[in-house]
Design a protein around this nucleic acid. Sequence first.
DNA 1: TTTGTTATTGCAACTGAGTTCTAATAAATT
DNA 2: AATTTATTAGAACTCAGTTGCAATAACAAA
Lengths: 126, 126
Amino acid sequence: MGVVRKTKSVDLLLDQFKSGSEAISVIELVDRLSSKLNKTTIYRVLNNLEDDGVLHSFLGVNSLKWYAKCSGCSKTKHSDIHPHFQCTVCGKVDCLPVKMTIPEIPTHDVKSIQVLINGACTNCRA
Amino acid sequence: MGVVRKTKSVDLLLDQFKSGSEAISVIELVDRLSSKLNKTTIYRVLNNLEDDGVLHSFLGVNSLKWYAKCSGCSKTKHSDIHPHFQCTVCGKVDCLPVKMTIPEIPTHDVKSIQVLINGACTNCRA
DNA sequence: TTTGTTATTGCAACTGAGTTCTAATAAATT
DNA sequence: AATTTATTAGAACTCAGTTGCAATAACAAA
Ligand SMILES: [Mn+2]
Ligand SMILES: [Mn+2]
Ligand SMILES: [Zn+2]
Ligand SMILES: [Zn+2]
């Protein structure tokens, strides 16, 4: 339903995504903010910010939910489509600024595509 | 650890994958077999069959775990890499026999890639 | 066939990410 | 300042998946 009122909760969560373009898991956000925000509030505000095109979410390994900043999205149009990279060494998740070619599938109507890549990130590779 | 003994449980689960090449969620398998097998047993046997290269697993929408037959895999080598297609209309999941081009990412060491495509399947598209 | 070994199973309890419900609170409007 | 209602905290809940352990059954050896 989107964010309507500028509350302390919205500000606190937006702060977490201010610096850097790294994705953050909800578990991590709950851990960071548990003394200031209720778990339920965190889930709801993140959901609202996604509706507004401010953040986008995706599932990492272990089916954990992750959020990252959108770039160029709005309440009416989510256009920031890209693969996500989860490092198997340090666990960090990056949004990859890479053009994905959606494969031609004559037998199916493709609407969306989610790509999760695993491997070693810039810091962790030998 | 793989399957060691040919038990009733192994046979029952393999039967579910005998005909057709459609993926089946664990939830569906538990539902189908709950009168004959314990939930825990189902999870364990599926895991063993995956170790043996007989089945492969992946996560669909809602983070549910799905299994499908492998083709050309063995206990030592899982080589059956392909995208999965989940129909948003009927919910069915297909293994797509499509070559995926892993994008070049000079900043990361890519080990594996998981692709989940959403849309309408052959039966459900207008 | 009988016996012994141990892989496998069933069951109950547990885990934990995410959701739901409701009363209290606080942003925003009048 | 009073009113409206979006938002929040908290507790309880959901449910896919896991764990621990005692009972069972495959399978090989005798
Ligand atoms: Mn992203
Ligand atoms: Mn498959
Ligand atoms: Zn790393
Ligand atoms: Zn369909």
